[in-house]
């Protein structure tokens, strides 16, 4: 990609560029805005992950859903999108949606109100969430963009996926600095995981590295209040 076609807007905390001819904005909160389609994309919410662990005797705070929804709400307020795509693994397990406390159910409903909402199926939540409304699909297309949960082995250009929980490590002055990130290589774009209890995995790890065209790769690292664009050559390989 041509450096001039990219604008990193440190003030607004985002980076915008053309991906398969569509202007997209990577927001430091970890959401992707596609203005042409009035759409906000978010991936790997893993709602009710705390409760999923509690079912296995680990009493993680039940507040992860509240935290995730609050951050999502704040990000949505910045773009006020007509459509939201949740790119799979929206709930941490199959019981999550049904067992969700009313408090959080109401919070989610408030976010969904007045918008088109699309649940893409993920490996953690292959079946549509119960009693929540919205549309459910395995994948979804908008113009040149195709939205699906898992990156495919042979992607068609314009694939937007999640699942990997990507992070990149850059070595700066000898210090490893690791951040969750968006990854884009001109063919596909992989979203960072958004949920409050989601960790991240290095894209340079042997399992994920071959998915990308490294000479053309850019990672957009999520900073405290902005994104940092880093070319593939700066990302530590294993």
């Amino acid at each position: 990609m041509n450096a001039l076609a990219r604008t990193v807007n440190a003030e607004a905390g985002s980076a915008s560029f053309d991906f398969v001819g569509v202007r997209v904005t990577c927001d430091h909160a970890g959401v992707l805005h596609v203005p042409a389609f009035d759409t906000l994309v978010v991936s790997d919410l893993h709602l009710e992950k705390g409760a999923a662990f509690a079912r296995r005797n680990m009493h993680l705070p039940p507040w992860d859903t509240a935290a995730t929804l609050a951050r999502l709400g704040a990000a949505m307020a910045r773009y006020n999108p007509g459509r939201v795509i949740s790119l799979g693994d929206s709930f941490h397990d199959g019981q999550g949606a049904a067992a969700m406390p009313d408090l959080f159910r109401a919070g989610l409903a408030a976010l969904m109100a007045g918008r088109e909402w699309i649940w893409i199926a993920g490996n953690h939540d292959p079946r549509p969430p119960e009693n929540l409304g919205g549309l459910s699909a395995d994948n979804f297309s908008l113009g040149a963009l195709t939205f699906r949960h898992e990156p495919s082995r042979r992607p068609t250009p314009g694939e937007v996926a999640g699942h990997l929980h990507p992070a990149a490590t850059v070595i700066l002055r000898g210090h490893p600095v690791r951040r969750a990130c968006f990854v884009e290589d001109g063919v596909r774009l992989v979203m960072p995981a958004f949920g409050a209890f989601t960790g991240a995995a290095d894209i340079a790890a042997p399992r994920t590295a071959p998915l990308f065209d490294w000479p053309r790769l850019n990672a957009y690292l999520l900073g405290r209040d902005r994104v940092y664009a880093m070319p593939g050559r700066l990302i530590a390989r294993r």
């Binding site: 700066l172 951040r179 940092y228 664009a229």
Partner: peptide, 13 residues
């Protein structure tokens, strides 16, 4: 670490 990132980003620009 955040400052290091900002510094690197400046250099790239």
């Amino acid at each position: 670490k955040e400052s290091l990132l900002a510094e690197a980003a400046e250099e790239l620009l």
